[in-house]
Design a protein around this nucleic acid. Structure first.
Lengths: 254, 254
DNA sequence: ACCTGAACACCGTTCAAGT
DNA sequence: ACCTGAACACCGTTCAAGT
């Protein structure tokens, strides 16, 4: 390669990319892009550096290690959620808390669907990144605005699990989902095969095994939210019964 | 190392281990042991081979690749569950389906708690290994024994999600869980901090963030099972209304 | 202050070769 | 039939060195 060719190359691709210097911010954005484009397995330190037109070791100046990159892109996803749902603020009290929470979670879900690698990655992280923590905080706040006790809220957070982030983990589709071997399948797993036959009849597009379509997500979410609303009503009853004697307590919750 | 020493070593450790020849079975059992003992990250092909007193490449004679090992140990876990719950058979009809399912799932949970790496690994697998499929089949069968329609069962499977295997994914505990910085925490995530203060007051042993204790798991499980029971009752009502005219239908379900 | 080259200790996997 | 040695193409990360 002659000196002239190298100069040409430098002035176009490489140099253009490096006009803006590297930064934590730019590294993380590139990491999200790479994961979106090529999958989370393709997100290696070396390939990430390449996508930034830089040597692998340069990244370590801006980021301590790969774990920090993974934590960082999870937090970026939650920043995107914050934009999607119009911020994380919650009203003091809200009779429509049930709907508000539903809308917030479905907003988070839309973002998760844009970044298919995010759910598994989020599950694997230990510890809450700052924006993730503020999202969780807004869920607690929304439940509180509906008048639930902190105790019930605590249970609610566990009951929701990953569903509060807009996804539920799914088993992959069975790849041997040819139509012919349904008989063979029935021999090993008769009940499952029978269910699939019915479900498939109703919806020919559904895949064998599990699927994570919007309807199923909302069914499960509503099952939990409705159960929580019922328990909240029970709490309200109990409060009313306790305070028969005098005026309304300052805060009947917890 | 002299010839004599090598001979001694061979007659004790190495040889004893290799008296029984390698097999898929033995490889998988060793893999579970290694994951249990040293963590799932320590489960590399090379270390696994070492634990069997064999060269890494020898494993490839019994198993096609690492993915197959991971699929295999997940299936081994479900074989263990099968033993734990006394088999996967289900009665034709069962008025106590609710309890039966609960007991089965809590049995699965006990096994999962013995193999802390299993939940994350199961989540990462695509496709159902044979024993896993039979477990899922038994869950479908139990719901069917309770008279739920296949449609409702399908929704139920999605609603349960990983909870049907006895776990729900959790965020790791916040490591900055010192008591002092709760004020600092309150500034960033006020609602979360308030909830934790109450929950912690009630149960000083609880950790910051999420925790996966038995109570919370059962709370969430029961919330879903109760919701399903309610929906099943609605289906029964609808069936009764439809068949006002004549005798009982052969199978009122679906 | 920011980036790099060479090197280290690991991975999973192949392929031809040993017994 | 079963196991191995050497090699390949990758990882993440260190450390001293360049500008």
């Amino acid at each position: 390669m002659t000196r002239g060719r190298r100069a040409t190359m430098t002035s176009t691709t490489q140099q253009a990319r490096r006009r803006t210097p590297l930064s934590r911010e730019r590294v993380l954005r590139a990491a999200v892009d790479l994961a979106d484009t090529a999958g989370i397995d393709a997100l290696t330190v070396r390939r990430l550096a390449e996508s930034l037109g830089v040597e692998a070791m340069s990244l370590y100046y801006h980021v301590p290690n790969k774990e920090a990159i993974l934590d960082g892109i999870v937090d970026l996803v939650f920043t995107e959620i914050e934009g999607e749902v119009g911020g994380f603020q919650v009203p003091e009290t809200d009779a429509a808390w049930h709907d508000a929470l539903r809308v917030r979670i479905l907003g988070a879900r839309r973002v998760m669907l844009r970044h298919p690698w995010a759910p598994a990655l989020l599950d694997s992280r230990t510890g809450l990144a700052p924006t993730t923590a503020r999202y969780v905080d807004s869920v607690v706040g929304t439940l509180r605005s509906g008048g639930l006790s902190y105790d019930l809220i605590h249970h609610a957070m566990h009951a929701l699990g990953s569903r509060m982030f807009g996804f539920s983990q799914e088993l992959g589709e069975d790849d041997d989902s040819g139509d012919a071997d349904l008989a063979q399948l029935a021999a090993m797993v008769p009940h499952l095969a029978a269910m699939l036959a019915v479900v498939r009849h109703d919806d020919p597009d559904s895949t064998l095994g599990w699927c994570d379509d919007q309807y199923e997500f909302e069914f499960g979410l509503d099952l939990i939210l409705d159960g929580l609303a019922r328990k909240r009503a029970l709490e309200a009853q109990a409060d009313a019964a306790t305070s028969t004697a005098g005026t309304a307590a300052e805060d009947p919750r917890d």
